[in-house]
């Protein structure tokens, strides 16, 4: 079982990122995934969070209390949620938006997710897909091909989000989580 929390600020496409991973796992790989999200009254802004649990068998409890992997694309969500990570878990943040706190007991990775989307891809709204790419490389949460299928099904074939995802695959240092959890 793999438990992931993706977080950031409303409008960054955090929930969509979670849904894409869930679709890849469930529809294209035949495994089980449950995704939940926290809502505030705000339509835009505020901390956005989605929890993903992925397993080979039926999942009962849908929320993530202790994540193997936490992604924070915003300082607020980093500060608020870093205690939700398991000791020694993997914490991925955006290099330009989050200042790491050395006291957090996790393997922390700071990646240029937002900058890549903005400066290189000229598509700031695709930062979430870069993040999914990086996550796939680091954790093996899903096969790249099934994520591509999920993106194409949701946004259309040839959509720029596919390129953003592929670029994201390259952003990560390589596999850092080993398969026993998945």
């Amino acid at each position: 079982m793999l438990k992931i929390i993706l977080s950031g600020v409303g409008g960054q496409g955090i929930i969509t990122a979670g849904v894409i991973i869930g679709e890849a796992v469930v529809i294209h790989e035949g495994r089980y995934a449950v995704q939940t999200q926290s809502y505030g009254a705000e339509v835009r802004g505020g901390v956005a969070r989605t929890d993903l649990t992925i397993d080979h068998s039926e999942i009962y409890y849908p929320r993530v209390d202790q994540a193997h992997v936490l992604v924070a694309l915003h300082q607020d969500s980093y500060v608020r949620l870093n205690r939700r990570i398991r000791p020694g878990g993997i914490l991925v943040v955006d290099e330009s938006l989050v200042t790491l706190d050395a006291r957090v007991d996790a393997r922390q990775f700071s990646l240029p997710i937002v900058r890549t989307a903005e400066d290189e891809l000229k598509r700031p709204q695709a930062a979430n897909m870069c993040m999914v790419g990086a996550l796939v490389t680091m954790t093996g949460v899903a096969e790249p091909e099934s994520v591509r299928s999920a993106i194409a099904a949701r946004f259309g074939p040839g959509h720029p989000n596919l390129a953003a995802f592929d670029r994201g695959l390259q952003l990560a240092p390589g596999r850092v989580l080993h398969s026993s959890t998945v």
Partner: peptide
Amino acid sequence: ELLAHMRER
């Protein structure tokens, strides 16, 4: 609400 908004297969 939890069932309403969570996603699963």
